[in-house]
Design a binder for these strands. Structure first.
Lengths: 278, 278
DNA sequence: GGGATCGTGGAAGATTTATTCCATTTTTCA
DNA sequence: TGAAAAATGGAATAAATCTTCCACGATCCC
């Protein structure tokens, strides 16, 4: 009974409270209940729409074990736990399908429908960003940029928005930053000095100016961090670290939601590291 | 039996297919089944986590009526319909709580956690954009920009990314567009001619250069469309139409996800209208 | 090494939930 | 208006899902 600590514990009332409790008792859980905990941690979103049978099968245990697990968490049973997840889901409802249906019903064809479509695409892009993000590479990118003297940014066309935002944020955090706008600009290369780093953003179809600046900088032994929408594009060879953010498109168009989010995170992380470093 | 068109119809296999079918038969549905359709349209997100009893009560009908409704849609019953929603939920539900829990578990404190936070914020921003969007104003903005000779874009600092993206897209769609970068630039005012329109983007704290250009343009009787993060900022008076996109922030930082999405939609809509117009 | 405790699997029982059926009411159309 | 068809509500039935129980096996500790 040690693990369950019955009676005294009341049921969690929010999902994050549940997660906290899980952190607390995780180590003291017996084998099968531990499996449940592990599975739950990685599949929280399934709880609202699954049966004990499904979940216990997923965790590789008997339904009765999952039942005991729920009780160890402080619930009376699985149903009570599921109710929590269902309630939370009902409240926090990002339902694009619903909105789209309403718009379509009204015979809407114009910009509002477009916004709904782009919003849904952005939402999917963010999910995919989270799912495919390589934590190690991200950390490496941060390290390189945090250690650089001046951070040089380059990106044209669609990529310019990313670079512009990063430049603005880094500047606000007092990180020495240069945005390289014009490609012909002779000084570009000389301005990038040993000890600096280059952050190059380019999406397919890649613009030569960006790639060439990245290549030349790389050849000079100056570290290049890349951001692209594919892992095997031309930046893969020149960049010491390549980050990938792929966008879900609407027709032929896309909003750089994921790339923007990734770049901003990077800027904030680097800004924080440099402040600490000093 | 007319409405159900039994046998011949197979069950929809995606939620949007279901919605299509709903559009098709909606008018021919008897009263109670019509109530079900209406309720479903506004509460799609509930299906995955509710029972027939819940849903029928919500729609104000008997469970048996809801059952018939499911069958009229081509399903064998409620369970089959619910399975569809559950499946879609499993695939696309972004579980930030889940991801954050995993990161926290690993003692993660660096950039990956930041990305998760920004992604969640972006997601919320998009939901809020959808919920607060004023369809009429958006349509008006489209009309103004579609009717303009040349579209002039202005926005500095954080807003520049928006303007840059819009400029790129409009240009790609062969819409005459000018991005006004430097504020001191004498020509700015003269370049904006009667028959043109100005799209001005500015977030708090507003930059004077943008506001002043907008004000002068407005005084000359040239229409200004504004994009801001608040409805009662300085652009409210000078803009003929003001669009609002508010971002959810992480600490002191924010990604312009919602604004970017709105601006892109606007650009695509305007591009489409101009192509049709010619 | 042996008794006590704890954990486990499987199946039986209880409960909730989906589904069908049919008598009654409402609508349709001649 | 009246007969036929369709729709409806409610209760009965079937199915699924949750929950408990207990015998068996593993582990711990004296």
């Amino acid at each position: 009974m040690a693990a369950t600590g019955n009676e005294t514990t009341r049921a969690p009332e929010t999902v994050s409270e549940l997660l906290d409790r899980l952190d607390g008792i995780d180590a003291s859980l017996p084998k099968r209940l531990g499996q449940c905990a592990g599975f739950l941690r990685h599949n929280i979103h399934l709880v609202a729409v699954s049966t004990v049978a499904d979940l216990s099968a997923g965790a590789g245990v008997q339904p009765s074990a999952f039942m005991r697990f729920c009780q160890a968490l402080g619930f009376s049973g699985f149903s009570e736990m599921q109710a929590l997840f269902r309630a939370e889901y009902r409240e926090f409802r990002p339902d694009y399908a619903e909105r789209l249906s309403q718009l379509r019903q009204r015979g809407e064809e114009g910009p509002e429908l477009l916004v709904a479509n782009f919003a849904e695409a952005g939402h999917k892009s963010l999910v995919s960003l989270m799912n495919t993000l390589d934590g190690e590479r991200l950390q490496q990118a941060c390290d390189i940029l945090a250690a650089a003297g001046t951070i040089h940014l380059v990106g044209l066309r669609r990529a310019f928005a990313i670079v512009s935002t990063m430049g603005y944020m880094l500047d606000k955090m007092q990180v020495p930053t240069v945005i390289h706008r014009t490609s012909g600009q002779i000084e570009s290369d000389h301005a990038i000095r040993p000890g600096d780093a280059l952050f190059a953003v380019s999406f397919a179809p890649f613009s030569q100016e960006t790639l060439q600046l990245a290549a030349r900088t790389h050849e000079r032994g100056i570290p290049v961090v890349g951001l692209s929408d594919t892992a095997d594009g031309p930046l893969a060879t020149t960049a010491r670290t390549l980050l990938v953010a792929r966008e879900v498109d609407v027709g032929a168009f896309r909003v750089p939601t994921a790339a923007m989010t990734l770049a901003t995170s990077l800027a904030v992380a680097v800004g924080g590291m440099r402040k600490e470093g000093n």
